[in-house]
């Protein structure tokens, strides 16, 4: 179990062991969606807002 700081509220976010780059995690404190941008050491950034599209 590792952890990293939430870039939105500064709270510590607990991370499960097999996190992968690109994975989206919710901050338990502020609720922000965070993207795992590095795993060793783990680093989080605010996940980009992306509208879901209806296909090619």
């Amino acid at each position: 179990m590792s952890e990293a700081d939430c870039p939105e509220c500064g709270a510590t976010v607990e991370l499960h062991d097999d996190i992968e780059v690109g994975e989206i995690i919710d901050c338990g404190t502020c609720g922000a969606e965070l993207e795992v941008i590095a795993v060793d050491p783990p680093e989080l950034d605010t996940a980009p807002e992306l509208e879901e599209d209806w296909g090619e």
Partner: peptide, 10 residues
């Protein structure tokens, strides 16, 4: 698992 996948060309 929800992920961000980059490198799309659209």
């Amino acid at each position: 698992t929800k992920k961000i996948k980059r490198g799309d060309h659209s």
